[in-house]
Amino acid sequence: MSAAMEMQGVRVELGGAVVLAGAALRLEQGEHVLLVGPSGSGKSTLLRVAAGLMRPAAGRVWLHGALATDGTRLLMPPERRGIGYLFQGGALWPHLSAHGNLEFVLRAAHVPRRERRGRADEMLEWVGLEGFGGRPTGTLSGGEAQRLALARALVARPPLVLLDEPLGPLDRALRSALLERLELLQRRLGFTALHVTHDPDEAASIASRMLALEAGSVVESSQHGLIP
């Protein structure tokens, strides 16, 4: 069975500095992999390369066995990669309501109009935001906004989800609540998750594996708290 995602020899330079120096990793179907590393170590860059939002100087990316990026060539555009992405800070579209944010994604995924509201409501319920559909995103609290961002990343049922510091701005209670939701949703929807964080303890309870980004390379980390 092919991996959900595989990367080999990915090299990225930004402003003359090497951010990723031949990074390689492999995610099996259904895994929840934690990628840890200090701020500025290139974690978000790695996710952007995986999503096709950035072209590496060198290296290859496969998604479900298909070559998606080959060096500087994007063989598969971002929208065809079947990826859900929870951006750092949420990146919710501020001019749209909660419903609007989810339905925008569903429309782009060619979900018929009559089904969109139902699917959006179902997802809002799954993340604990039932009744929030009409709320403008600017009126949501930090925890609510982060749950909506998670809902948006999952609403089109992508097989692979990239989570960029999904718990970053939340307090301890909200973090554990969101982690529980995430674990539940992963069981329910069966997606593969690559979860990036600077805090190795953040999602250790639900991660099947932990990787670390060191000096631009991905290394296997067998024990929690390995990364300073």
Partner: peptide
């Protein structure tokens, strides 16, 4: 913000990204 555009681009490519851009520029 770049992430707002990228989130749209992941969902629906350049047309979706342009829709977000123009919606933000419209007011």
């Amino acid at each position: 913000d770049r992430r707002l555009v990228e989130a749209a681009r992941l969902a629906g490519g350049a047309p979706a990204a342009l829709r977000i851009d123009f919606a933000m520029m419209l007011p």
